[in-house]
């Protein structure tokens, strides 16, 4: 009895990995078949990048002076990568609620697969899509004058770190989706936690100009830490000289945030998934 329980209760890690892979593939196929998913996910950050660069680039560029080759785009692009990862994560909530509405989640839940596979398959596929979008954004950046002062390799490393951050945020959004249940609600509820993270951060401007009560939050919250880490990688010493943290400290702090977000939200989301009544 006990042995059969151990054997049959759940599924092993090996099967969980296999199940997840199959569901990643299914979601990736959807991403390819529904071109809007990748298209709009790309158009939006590209538009932001161009608007911010050309509208604010002048004034902020003046403030930046000769730093970073005198180009605001060099300062802006790493921040836009982080913002892209943030926004893309909302698609995790939307996609999950669409699957719920279509009954696909019920089908998955009636199959003998790992509990985590449906959510992991979703968050991993979304991470892959975010990587594609960020690469496209980077390409546009190069077209409008971005010159990766830290070198291409470090830029790519930054993109990978940023994708991991997007992955962690996808787990937050998985929970949001399972709680709100409809795609419309997922869309609006998904944005809510992102706004304070986005604006009280160093995505657009250095946080020195923020009021002091906000500064403590702003300089330690994950979006700032990630943006600064990306800048440390992509802009190199010129940026790091302005920071109180070294590059390795920044990277560790980023990994801490990514790990902490996953550690808290992945179990919550899986738990919610098991109990969700559609």
């Amino acid at each position: 009895m006990t042995t059969s329980l151990v054997h049959t209760r759940g599924v092993g890690l090996k099967q969980a990995t296999r199940d997840t892979g199959i569901i990643v593939k299914r979601n990736a196929m959807r991403n390819v078949r529904i071109p809007q998913l990748v298209l709009f996910a790309t158009v939006q950050p590209v538009m932001f990048l161009l608007l911010f660069n050309y509208v604010f680039g002048g004034s902020i560029g003046l403030a930046l002076g000769d730093a970073y080759g005198g180009k605001y785009i060099n300062y802006l692009l790493p921040g836009m990568l982080v913002q892209t990862a943030l926004f893309s994560s909302i698609q995790t909530a939307v996609g999950l609620t669409e699957d719920l509405a279509a009954g696909v989640i019920d089908r998955f839940r009636s199959l003998p697969i790992a509990r985590s596979a449906v959510l992991a398959g979703r968050t991993l596929a979304d991470m892959t899509r975010t990587l594609v979008v960020m690469t496209l954004l980077l390409a546009v950046g190069f077209l409008v004058g971005f010159d990766a002062p830290g070198g291409l390799l470090r830029t790519l490393a930054g993109i990978c770190l940023c994708a991991l951050f997007g992955f962690s945020m996808s787990w937050v959004m998985a929970l949001v989706g399972l709680v709100v249940k409809t795609p419309e609600a997922a869309n609006s509820a998904g944005f809510l936690p992102l706004f304070p993270l986005m604006f009280a951060s160093s995505i657009f401007v250095p946080p020195e100009t923020l009021p002091s009560w906000m500064k403590g939050f702003a300089s330690n919250q994950p979006v700032t830490v990630l943006s600064d880490t990306l800048r440390g990688l992509i802009l190199g010493d010129e940026f790091l000289a302005t920071q109180s943290r070294s590059l390795s400290e920044l990277i560790l702090y980023s990994l801490f945030w990514i790990g902490a977000i996953i550690a808290v939200f992945a179990p919550l989301a899986v738990r919610k998934y098991r109990r969700t009544v559609s």
């Binding site: 529904i34 019920d106 003998p112």
Partner: peptide, 17 residues
């Protein structure tokens, strides 16, 4: 779940596959 199959009241199939 290994022993049962389910076709629910509304079709649960993936539109884009």
């Amino acid at each position: 779940r290994r022993r049962l199959g389910l076709a629910g009241q509304s079709a649960a199939v993936d539109e884009f596959l």
